[in-house]
């Protein structure tokens, strides 16, 4: 097995006539944190959504866990999709299910795991994110930050090989952001393979092993984390970093 968990070659995608991703070539290293940066509308979310089949692509090659993905095969992700966790910007817990029911739905119904073992792991993960007392709460009874932490647990309990985070702090109040970012930092320290789309530059600087900088659907720079922040190689990246003024 190579050290790359994802390999993308010459990937292109359009929404109708609008080109959203152009000739994307990248690799996602195993057990590392890859941060995807870029201005709004640059194709960051679309890019990571191709990694778990939420978006198809028009041409190019995508290889995940060594398996080549056929963009026209709707079942291409059937075997690997529960090995890829994802957390969205708007948390999107199932409102009709309690915290515990949200978390255990995947492991019980998809992975068909033992209920006792799943409940034990769920409680342990909830405790790790400080929500051990909330397992019987409904999403509407939680704050935004708490919901986002539940969403992270819901993804982690599937024991994914890869975690995708799509602007997970963008909908949160400033005081909630820190708690969620702390959890992401802890995950990064556990050598989980993570791809993180974020606008939190300080956080990105702290956790990124690798940065992919996108603009208008093209990769402008693909760089080791610290190097990107200290010596961006392109003018576009420098302007972007200055505009974020962190």
């Amino acid at each position: 097995m190579t050290d790359e968990i994802i390999q993308v070659r010459h990937l292109n995608k359009k929404f109708g006539d609008k080109v959203v991703l152009t000739d994307i070539n990248l690799t996602i290293p195993k057990n590392k944190v890859t941060v995807v940066l870029g201005p709004s509308g640059s194709g960051k979310s679309t890019l990571i959504r191709t990694f778990n089949g939420l978006e198809s692509f028009d041409s190019g090659d995508l290889e995940i866990f060594g398996q080549k993905i056929d963009p026209h095969d709707k079942k291409a992700f059937a075997v690997i999709k529960h090995e890829i966790g994802m957390v969205f910007q708007s948390y999107d817990l199932f409102p009709n299910r309690t915290v515990m029911q949200n978390i255990t739905l995947g492991p019980l119904k998809v992975q068909k795991r033992n209920e006792k073992e799943v409940l034990g792991q769920a409680r342990q993960l909830l405790a790790e994110v400080g929500l051990e007392k909330f397992e019987n709460y409904y999403p509407r009874q939680l704050s935004g930050g708490q919901k986002q932490r539940v969403a992270i647990v819901r993804a982690l309990i599937l024991n994914p090989k890869l975690m995708l985070f799509d602007e997970v702090t963008a909908s949160l109040d400033p005081e909630m952001v820190r708690g969620v970012l702390e959890i992401l930092k802890q995950l990064a320290e556990q050598d989980l393979t993570m791809v993180v789309v974020t606008h939190e530059m300080n956080f990105a600087k702290q956790v990124a092993d690798k940065v992919i900088f996108l603009d208008s659907g093209e990769i402008v720079e693909e760089q080791a984390g610290q190097k990107f922040f200290q010596e961006p190689q392109t003018k576009r990246a420098r302007v972007f970093l200055e505009s974020m003024s962190f």
Binding site: K81, H82, F88, D92, F94, L105, V110
Partner: peptide, 20 residues
């Protein structure tokens, strides 16, 4: 996004219909 949330936890089409 609710449907997508179900898809990313691995639910099949039938499970998505039933639980989400």
């Amino acid at each position: 996004i609710q449907v997508e949330s179900g898809q990313v936890v691995g639910l099949s089409t039938w499970q998505l219909a039933r639980y989400v």
